[in-house]
Design a binder for these strands. Structure first.
Lengths: 238, 238
DNA sequence: TATTGTACGGTTGTCTGATAACCTTATATG
DNA sequence: CATATAAGGTTATCAGACAACCGTACAATA
């Protein structure tokens, strides 16, 4: 019996790979916006998979806003301006330049958030902030738990703005950055700088507590630039 | 013959509604992070639909990072820190406070983008910027085309940072804001203020062209505050 | 001619049942 | 005790069918 390996290799999650392949066709313009995709039957034949898989792939693209489907008519590519969601591929951040770009995006958001939080935070917010801070200064210092506390600290600042979108976006970005840092973490280097980092966090916390947005922004700016230089990033700043 | 209407009403997109229902169970904590969801068979029985529909719903949740599936084991709710994508529900922005929050988020990003663009833009970027500007000042002024040109202008600034994430995030945010504005647009009011808006855009463009990041940031800040007050938004600013 | 009604083919949406791949657990085996 | 094997459950994929819906062509009608 002769095997046919010309079709897609089926080692992991068929629909996702087919979705990304069709997605690439659209992103790179081989399927123009508004143009109709081949029918599910044809796509199934083309990729050598069943229609279920094709349907799941198209459903995924629809969720991302890359295609729209109309029953009885077909599936159509949409122009990329009205995507429904933002997604960052995991692998992208391995690249140093890309990581730096994301950090550069984070900068103004965190600073603004610090200012807003200084104005808008409640007593409960401040309490949670102190909790996170305590976790960082606790005995175990820079274990995984310490890193998580760092994350929680910044997350709590975003929450203290009482602006849902700051929480949504900053939480998302911070999580990506955290993952990337973990990937390339040198424990030895980090243990040395814990004290500095904690001191910076305390400065932010105190500025917040005194409800001084200007000082909070400055403290956050200082902290992020410190963090960036520790991570060997060159950021533009004005 | 007796009809059975107890099950889900099937007027539009079954999987999406089931996905949002399961998603709500997770978001509101009735299914804890890490906890296992019911099997597809059981879910299908529960909702009174076929397993295909349930599978498509779960696939959607997996895309959003709300659940993870392991073949042979089951589907599990994930804690919301590692969601894979950001999404803003359409209806949310109808609310004035929510719209204002999003605009507040946009503010620091646009300003930072203007500064970065002033430093990083190429000759080609400037050309495209001028194109968009020309479309705005063209005869038809504040038609739909004019609004699109406005969008394109800001999009081009984001692109001129040569930071992929600024383009991604700002493009996404600006698109939402544009949609919201369109929903509640008063043509009469807008036509009066076209001249002002265009003048502000020109100021940004000139600052960019002279590669002066400080001035570019100021011009953008001024423009956004003007736009905000025209839209009757109260933004915090420092 | 212009409009309306209708039948038809094509496409997506949903259903059903079956098989494959995979994991966990229990049981047997050395 | 450690390892191998069997069993059962769950997701992944497949295949084929019917339902819902759309667009078009064409006939019927005014």
């Amino acid at each position: 019996m002769v095997m046919d390996f010309s079709q897609i290799r089926r080692n992991e999650h068929l629909p996702a790979r087919i979705a990304s392949q069709i997605g690439r066709e659209i992103s790179e313009g081989r399927i123009a916006p508004g143009e109709k995709l081949p029918t599910e039957h044809i796509l199934a034949k083309t990729f050598g998979v069943s229609r279920s898989v094709v349907r799941e792939a198209i459903a995924q693209l629809r969720n991302e806003g890359l295609v729209e489907t109309r029953q009885g008519v077909g599936a159509f590519a949409t122009d990329f301006e009205h995507r429904q969601s933002i997604r960052i591929e995991q692998g992208n951040l391995a690249d140093h330049a890309s990581f730096q770009s994301l950090f550069q995006l984070r900068l103004p958001l965190e600073i603004e958030a610090a200012g807003l939080a200084a104005t808008n935070h409640t007593a409960e917010d401040l309490m949670k902030l102190d909790e996170a801070l305590e976790q960082m200064t606790g005995g175990e210092k820079w274990t995984e738990k310490g890193v998580l506390a760092d994350l929680a600290f910044h997350r709590q600042i975003a929450a203290s703005t009482h602006n849902e979108y700051f929480l949504l976006f900053l939480g998302f970005i911070a999580e990506r950055i955290h993952l990337a840092i973990n990937m390339a973490r040198e424990a030895a280097v980090l243990t040395e700088i814990v004290e500095v980092t904690i001191a910076e966090h305390v400065a932010i916390r105190d500025a917040l507590a005194s409800r001084d947005p200007i000082r909070a922004r400055e403290a956050m700016r200082h902290h992020l630039h410190g963090a960036a230089s520790r991570l060997d990033l060159q950021l533009k700043v004005y």
